[in-house]
Amino acid sequence: MDPALDIRDLHFRRPGGFEIDVPELRIAAGEQVLLTGPSGCGKSTLLMLAAGLLDLGAGSISIAGQAISEVRGAARDALRADRVGMIFQTHHLLPGMTARENVGAALLFGGVPKGRHAEIADGLLNRLQVEPGTRIDRLSVGQQQRVAIARALAGEPSIILADEPTAALDPEHAANAIALLQEICRERGAALLLTSHDPSLESSFERVIRFSDLARSEEPTS
């Protein structure tokens, strides 16, 4: 089976001069990986690159065997819609809409038939114990984060890229949310790459990578 994420000889240089080099990172299908490192070290940028939201300078990135770094435009967007789920520190849900509509929005751009959207959304939300018909602004922060998790999983992605997903939660809620995320990823067969600067999460993951071990990042020299 193809690895969920396969990065080789990645080189990226941001217009400001910030550079990242990742010689190799491979995450097997269904594997759960914690990527730790201080804020601003480049963890988020690496996730954006993996999701095809930034263009590589050199190297290659494959998601479930498909080279996201080789395709562009609509093809890359379609690959992301089908294979990648993303979760952020702030939930980035669509305001004014219900939990069901937010999860449904993730299915709008993938290959899932329209008739199944509500069913998939409701199934995930019920599993995560959020009332599907409730408007986002009426939910607690914890519930909103669970809607974000449901949205990331709706398209049955090969990998979930979670960027500091618990930073907005208090420690107890954070631990619960991580446990839930890991559990549901296992249930759905999705790999998980989660970034955090919180060392207390390390015990929950079978594989922990320090960003500084994985990659070489450089501030502009001038």
Partner: peptide, 16 residues
């Protein structure tokens, strides 16, 4: 812009 960025993350194309 943030909302548009979210839609893009979800797989929405630029054209869409």
């Amino acid at each position: 812009r943030r909302q548009i960025a979210v839609l893009r993350v979800l797989g929405c194309t630029r054209r869409r």
